[in-house]
């Protein structure tokens, strides 16, 4: 499923007609990759957040494995989203005004993205610093919930309050980048929505593979848990 959708995305993304906008030109095709990465990341982190809550409600070790692996794949998507964003920035924002990359990186949206990556970096460091698995699971779940709950409102709210070059800020026309009907024509939307679903499914698929490996590796502990 995911594979088919992604093949469709890549073929459609590179070959179909796109509206030629000022400055953006052909780079609008990056939308199929860049925006989808962030969608995928948000969804994966949300899943990880939900599993952390579930862990704290029942203290079942498998939920901790779920939360951990979804966060890991989410971070991967975040890094890819950042990279595709940098490519996009290079052709749209940097060249025509002669700005350096450093000044562009101070954009509110980009700060939010960087913070998200830092938080999940910290999450993995925190996990690494425990030897006792129950304690590790419990405390990293607490941090995961707290960080997620602090971070995502601020990612969604703050960029909309202060001005930004990135779509979705006041001053640009659209409220939600890429979701507004003005942003895309019909052909693009036909590629975009399957692309979002495809990339997210790919992320979920990678995460479930990792989870299965982890569950097999920790089989002994899990069975002891059940019998205890």
């Amino acid at each position: 499923m995911s594979f088919l959708l992604l093949v469709y995305t890549i073929v459609g993304g590179f070959l179909l007609d796109v509206p030629k906008l000022f400055i953006l030109n052909e780079t609008i095709r990056n939308l199929y990759f860049h925006v989808c990465m962030w969608f995928g990341m948000m969804i994966l982190f949300t899943v990880s957040f939900v599993y952390s809550i579930k862990y704290l409600m029942g203290f079942q070790y498998r939920y901790d494995i779920f939360a951990n692996n979804f966060a890991a794949v989410g971070s991967l998507f975040g890094i890819l989203g950042y990279l595709t964003g940098v490519i996009w920035v290079n052709v749209t924002w940097v060249t025509d005004q002669g700005q350096s990359l450093g000044s562009v990186l101070k954009e509110p949206k980009l700060i939010g993205a960087a913070i998200a990556l830092l938080i999940y970096g910290a999450y993995f460091v925190l996990r690494g610093s425990f030897t006792d698995i129950d304690k590790r699971a419990r405390i990293s779940a607490v941090y995961n919930i707290f960080a997620f709950a602090m971070l995502f409102p601020s990612i969604w709210i703050i960029p909309r309050l202060v001005g930004s070059l990135h779509p979705g800020a006041p001053g640009s026309d659209s409220g939600n980048p890429a979701l507004d009907k003005n942003d895309m024509d019909a052909t693009m939307r036909m590629v975009f929505y399957p692309a979002v679903i495809g990339w997210t499914l790919l992320g979920v698929w990678i995460a479930t593979l990792k989870i299965r490996v982890a569950l097999l590796a920790e089989k002994n502990i899990l069975e002891n848990h059940k019998s205890a």
Partner: peptide, 11 residues
């Protein structure tokens, strides 16, 4: 510091 800084940046 590692845990707190990213969380505090928006604020």
């Amino acid at each position: 510091a590692i845990l707190g800084f990213p969380v505090i940046i928006p604020q």
